[in-house]
Amino acid sequence: MYAFKFHKPSSIEDAARLFSGADDARYLSGGHTLLPSMKLRLAGPSDIVDLSGIDSLKGIKVEGDKVVIGAGTRHNDVALSAEVRAAIPALADLAGGIGDFQVRNRGTIGGSIANADPSADYPAAIVGLGATVHTNKREIAGDDFFTGMFETALEDGEIVTAVSFPRPKRAAYMKFPNPASRYAVVGVMVAETASGMRVAVTGAAPSVFRIAEMEQALASNFSAEAIEGITVPADDLNSDMHAAADYRAHLVGVMAKRAIAKAAG
């Protein structure tokens, strides 16, 4: 790891000020992507601005039909929250399947979505549940947040402060985990929301995407049979030693059906 300066501000304003005043700063949240990247010298920031001392970024609130999760809230805080479990069980399930128990005790929702790893689980929840991302500058619709592989709508130095999830009528997330690291080789969130059906896929492509054809089919018949025969083209999907693109395309259908069956109860 290259040397860096370390800062631990206690307010969002101080964090943003430290970030903009440094040559090449990075925000640190749970650190489970950034620190490994720094160990490999793939990242060498001049300054680390640790967000974990900012209390206003932490916590879970249920407000009416919304669950609002602070950006610094850890995966296990979401997974083990009775409030989240009662309001949006699919979200608690998703958080409880990220990495392993120790990783879930460090990794945060804000850190995960700001990093926008193509195999992260949370993007499927942000898009699949129609969430809204709150930052220190604005609100960003979940559908507009992820813009590519490791790319988001966030501007340089912008801090995710919270994510609000509208409570769906029903939803479920199913993934095919990498056997060693548990990341989503393919993960699918299926939800019936107040604004319609949503089917969001993570892991398969450079960035999370929706499948309109499946959403239309589910609108008239919410069952796994309804999406029989609906496929996604393998052309633009990820391909690596763990899963070729055509296999990922196949897994999209399998995981979507499993999620529909689970959501349908």
Partner: peptide
């Protein structure tokens, strides 16, 4: 009180 992997945390974060 929470189990974590101490190889993926800076010592300064444990202040």
């Amino acid at each position: 009180g929470d189990s974590v992997k101490s190889c993926t945390m800076l010592a300064l974060q444990a202040e």
